[in-house]
């Protein structure tokens, strides 16, 4: 089930530095929402608040509300482990575990209690098929995941997230470390995945946001400047700063 996320008056601090200022945003199910903006604009910080990855960093504070399918996820009593099962994340650099391809996919499910071998086998096949990797690796599932190419590794990381059966998939610049062909394959994949998931993708690559996303949000200096349908953001943005950024006349 794809989730609906509502962000209300979100502020975020690293120590004394305020990285996000009063963000209000709705993230729709079965759509790709792209977050764009220059380096240090807060888009990565923002995406990491959605599965509370920032909790891992000492000295961070967050105010405001993030509501996932009607439930506030920033409260202390929320089980972060449970949240991260529902909100998967794919990172900038492919980070497969130094284990076999098979072990990578079942890493999460196995530790969350699925022990049945045939169930795990099925999960591996299904997850790898979902990311169009099955045919490439089905004969060498027990080989090290690090022997795969960068693009394959990233697809494996997506498969690893999908094996947890999440509702939301967060992607933090998932193609910035990949070559153009691998990038294209990931883009295709993301577009297919949106049929089932809510997808939020941070990208440095404006063209990528334009190509694949339905909704685009433009961040600048920790503020959400503008968000709306991608085709409108890229043909007739409302804010001059958005226009400057997407036309490359920035700074």
């Amino acid at each position: 089930m794809a989730s609906y996320i509502k962000v209300e008056n979100l502020d975020f601090f690293y120590g004394d530095f305020q990285a996000l200022h009063n963000i209000n945003l709705e993230i729709e199910p079965k759509k790709i929402t792209a977050l764009i903006g220059p380096s240090g604009c807060g888009k990565s910080t923002f995406i990491r608040t959605l599965n509370r990855m920032n909790d891992l960093i000492d000295g961070t504070r967050v105010h405001g509300k993030i509501i996932l399918d009607g439930k506030s996820i920033l409260k202390n009593e929320i089980d972060v482990v449970e949240l991260r099962k529902r909100v998967g994340m794919v990172f900038q650099k492919p980070n497969p575990f130094p284990k076999s391809i098979y072990e990578n996919v079942i890493y999460g499910p196995k530790r969350h209690g699925i022990r049945n071998k045939s169930q795990l086998d099925q999960l591996v096949e299904q997850s790898l098929k979902n990311v169009a990797l099955w045919d490439e690796v089905k004969d060498r599932l027990n080989e090290s995941a690090l022997a795969l190419s960068g693009g394959q590794q990233q697809r494996l990381c997506i498969a690893r997230s999908l094996a947890m059966k999440p509702d939301v998939l967060l992607m933090d610049e998932p193609t910035s470390a990949l070559d153009p062909i691998s990038t294209l394959r990931i883009e295709e994949l993301v577009q297919q995945l949106k049929e089932q998931y809510t997808i939020v993708i941070v990208t440095h690559n404006m063209q990528q946001a334009a190509r694949i996303s339905d909704i685009t949000a433009f961040f600048l200096n920790g503020e959400l400047i503008e968000y709306g349908q991608t085709e409108y953001i890229f043909t007739k943005p409302c804010d001059q700063r958005t226009e400057d950024y997407i036309t490359g006349r920035f700074g």
Partner: peptide
Amino acid sequence: ILKLIATQQ
């Protein structure tokens, strides 16, 4: 056409 050019390069 404009949308295609803007979004698909």
